[in-house]
């Protein structure tokens, strides 16, 4: 699904990623943990194509194609989804309209028929219900006046509707209470199958109680310094990152 090879990236003069190598096979969920400033968010932005990051070396193959060469919208059409750490507010843009425009843009690029308003609403209402969200969610402006938890749920709603092949969750758990955390986890777990992989970026072990990863990687100083099974997360929770940063 995703093969990151020796990825180096910088913002301005500061090198943030210093040779990240990571493979996520089909159907697996991997977690990336690490201290603040390790490059976790940079990795998610570089993979999703945000401007301002310069890739100086390496590649990221998504189903065999180097996505680093692609526009952000083409990465989305290829099946990549970034759940933002800080979802952006869009005043004047209705949530339902946004979701439908997004879904249809992706369907168009994939050569599939666009959904009309009725078919879309049916799909969206079902997704809203499954995520235990209020129906007026669809009528509100995108993320405007949403609480932190509502914004994260809205990311999960988008993910449920766009059905990506690879989801990157960038600290989606930050600022969430346990109930919201469970909903985010369920959003990921319901998509879990052979055609869906996820990269869960988190600072804390807590989310991984609900989304049990196949692998845990530790990112420190711009490199993966350790990889292991789900139990590694518990170990880090107990010992902290201090010993790893020097590695």
């Amino acid at each position: 699904m995703l093969e990151i090879k020796n990825l180096h990236a910088r913002i301005g003069d500061a090198e943030i990623l210093k040779g990240v190598t990571l493979t996520i096979p089909n159907g697996e969920i991997h977690a990336i943990m690490g201290p603040n400033g390790a490059g976790k968010s940079t990795l998610s932005y570089v993979l999703s194509g945000r401007e301002g990051y310069e890739v100086t070396e390496g590649e990221a193959l998504f189903n065999g194609e180097n996505i680093l060469e692609m526009e952000p919208e083409d990465r989305a059409a290829a099946g990549l989804f970034l759940a933002f750490q800080y979802p952006v507010e869009l005043p004047g843009v209705g949530n339902a309209n946004f979701l439908r425009t997004s879904l249809n843009a992706i369907r168009r690029k994939r050569g599939e028929d666009e959904l009309d308003a009725v078919a879309f609403l049916k799909l969206a209402r079902a997704a809203v219900k499954q995520l235990a969200m209020k129906e007026d969610f669809l009528k509100r402006n995108v993320n405007v006046g949403f609480s932190g938890g509502e914004k994260k749920r809205n990311e999960m709603l988008q993910m449920a509707i766009l059905k990506p092949h690879l989801a990157i969750l960038d600290e989606t758990d930050s600022g969430l209470d346990i109930d919201a955390l469970k909903i985010v986890a369920e959003g990921v777990n319901t998509l879990r199958d052979e055609t869906f992989s996820a990269l869960v970026i988190t600072h804390y072990q807590r989310l991984l109680d609900y989304i049990v990863p196949d692998m845990v990687h530790v990112l420190a100083g711009g490199k993966i310094v350790r990889s292991g099974p789900a139990s590694l997360a518990l170990e880090l929770e107990a010992s902290g990152y201090a010993g790893l940063e020097a590695a």
Binding site: E73, A76, G92, T101, S102, L103
Partner: peptide
Amino acid sequence: LDEEQVFYLRSRGIPEADARQILIRAFLEE
């Protein structure tokens, strides 16, 4: 135009020109 907003729309598969158009239309809404 807020480039964060443009990127958010593009990351959801919406082509850049369309993303800018959506944001300008939203700006006029009021």
